[in-house]
């Protein structure tokens, strides 16, 4: 069996297209690379969707936390505290069992016991809370002069938010938000190691990597492959966000543009 056959059989295995059975013997390097790469589809799916939906909730949370009205501030503060203060791992478990018991009550919750929807909800809330805190910090760091200038121009309410507050906030928060995006993608590997079952063995990259490690009892092949995939993914995200950052900062003189630096961030 040539490597191309393997690609045809397993490249889309993680979404259920191709060979039904996972390889049981003769674990060639090609099979491992293809199958783990196929699992990356799920990591990208979770990461991209959670990030793009979470962005809007995060902005809302940041505005809420910075609001003067207690009715708006308290819920946002609690939401952020709840999701930032507890381990994502436990959140996954808890959410899974909540959905499982809700499933008995109503059929609406059926999809949420599967990873594609249930885990997505958890990741969505989680990234919203983390980025909400980042945006909140940026909101507090907006130079006073900018707001005063906006007032002097007679900008108020929605117009001021759209033209001054929001772009400045985004610009200030961007380096930290890039880190958050990278580590969200890393966090997607947790999904299939919590309660959520991998239906018909359609798992993510780490699921397949640990499958190979279990079968061959040799961790020195699948995990480095996984590592290479993730380093590639990280570089892609960094490049994309760097591009966006250049666009956000395009009005600033060159020497005032802060260099995008990827600083450490941590798992949650």
């Amino acid at each position: 069996m040539s490597c191309w056959d393997t690609v045809q059989d397993y490249a889309l295995r993680s979404i259920g297209i191709g060979e039904r059975l996972l390889p049981r013997d003769d674990f060639t390097l090609c099979k491992q690379v293809v199958l783990i790469g196929s699992g990356m589809i799920w990591n990208v799916y979770f990461g991209v969707l959670a990030l793009s939906m979470g962005f809007f909730l995060a902005v809302a949370l940041a505005m809420g936390k910075a609001a003067r009205r207690t009715v708006l501030r308290k819920p946002s503060e609690w939401f952020i505290f709840l999701f930032r203060g507890s381990p994502l791992f436990i959140q996954f478990f808890f959410a899974y069992f909540v959905f499982l018991s809700l499933k008995g009550r109503s059929a609406i919750f059926d999809p949420f016991t599967a990873a594609w929807a249930g885990a997505l909800v958890v990741l969505f809330f989680n990234t919203a809370a983390y980025s909400g805190e980042i945006f909140y910090g940026a909101l507090r760091a907006i130079p006073r002069g900018d707001m005063e200038a906006a007032e002097a121009y007679g900008l108020t309410g929605w117009t001021r938010f759209r033209r001054i507050t929001f772009p400045t906030m985004l610009r200030l928060a961007w380096p930290a938000y890039t880190n958050e995006a990278i580590f969200l993608f890393h966090a997607t590997t947790l999904v299939f190691f919590t309660g959520f079952p991998a239906w018909q063995q359609r798992g993510d990259a780490l699921y397949y990597a640990s499958y190979f490690a279990d079968r061959t009892f040799n961790p020195f092949v699948p995990y480095p492959i996984l590592a290479l995939y993730f380093i590639g993914l990280t570089l892609c995200i960094a490049a994309l966000f760097g591009k966006a950052s250049r666009r956000l900062n395009r009005h600033l003189p060159a020497e005032r543009r802060r260099k995008m630096s990827l600083r450490p961030n941590f798992l949650r």
Binding site: H186, A187, T189, L206, F220, L226, A227, F230, I231, P264
Partner: peptide
Amino acid sequence: IVRGVPDIAFFLFFVIA
């Protein structure tokens, strides 16, 4: 390296390794 790769992968890897 440790920062570029999901840490859970590291946990799984190092225990066997």
